[in-house]
């Protein structure tokens, strides 16, 4: 099984250091939770892993199955199995959900292979069904006019169809009602059982209790200041992030 590792990763934007010397591994089937106060650098870290051009590491390595990918374009990282589910996925006016997924799947096609439209649609409808989405979703413009919950569902849909090896979820639970949260939890559990490595940024106790993560990582001021088991999340909830302002290993 694969592994995604960060080794002494540092990021800056202008003079501003966003992430400093962060290291951890995510194994296939592993589920790790990243917590931290607002502005701690959680979203920046996720974007850097996905290859956002504004978040390029100036030191350290990102390794995907032992291959350094710092210089890989976002599309190459995606095709090699990294998926970022955005906190606020952006609108793509006029681009339908089906078109987006078709194009993304086509982009993954090995050279010389012909895209099989029929089996794509079979899979597409099956994935829609498993997320309780109806077929009218196929023709909706991506994220345009979607409610918060619909946006998150659409991100999950993409995960099901693109089958990444590692998923980075930026507050997938924010703005979700109880039912939707249950659906997210179940979907993530299923993916994890199938061997997907998951890095989850969340504040939701419900989701954590349901998923029972392998570890909780605390990011504060751009540095990993704490790591431990699920009990760490409980501690954060009880006592806040202040106590993690300085490095401390649990």
């Amino acid at each position: 099984m694969g592994v995604l590792s960060l080794q002494n990763l540092s990021l800056r934007q202008g003079e501003n250091i966003l992430i400093e010397n962060v290291s951890f591994d995510i194994d296939g089937g592993g589920l790790h939770v990243l917590m931290g106060p607002n502005g701690a650098g959680k979203s920046s870290l996720l974007k850097a892993i996905a290859g956002h051009p504004d978040y390029r590491p100036f030191a350290g390595q990102i390794l995907l199955n032992n291959v350094p990918i710092n210089n890989f374009l976002p599309e190459e990282r995606s095709r090699r199995g990294i998926f970022l589910a955005f906190q606020n996925p952006i609108d793509l006016p006029g681009v339908s959900v089906a078109q987006l997924l078709k194009s993304a799947r086509q982009a993954r096609l090995p050279p010389g292979e012909v895209f099989d439209v029929i089996s794509f649609y079979n899979e597409f409808y099956e994935a829609l069904g498993s997320l309780s989405m109806d077929r009218s979703w196929a023709n909706r413009s991506v994220n345009e006019g979607f409610s918060g919950g619909e946006r998150k569902r659409c991100e999950l849909l993409q995960i099901l169809l693109l089958k990444p090896a590692f998923i980075l979820l930026d507050e997938i639970d924010s703005g979700l009602d109880v039912d939707a949260l249950g659906l997210v939890g179940k979907t993530l559990r299923r993916l994890r059982e199938a061997g997907t490595g998951i890095l989850l940024v969340t504040h939701s106790r419900k989701l954590l209790d349901f998923l029972a993560p392998d570890s909780v990582l605390i990011l504060h001021g751009g540095r990993l200041t704490g790591s431990g088991g699920p009990e760490l999340a409980i501690e954060v909830e009880r006592r806040g992030f202040q106590m993690f302002a300085k490095e401390r290993n649990g």
């Binding site: 996905a50 599309e75 609108d91 006029g94 078109q99 993304a104």
Partner: peptide
Amino acid sequence: DEQLFYLRSRGLDERGALGLMVNGFFS
């Protein structure tokens, strides 16, 4: 840039991403 990054993070190269957005615009 955010729209482009979104599409590229789904595996489309820049040209493909622009093509998809432009076709969306005219769709």
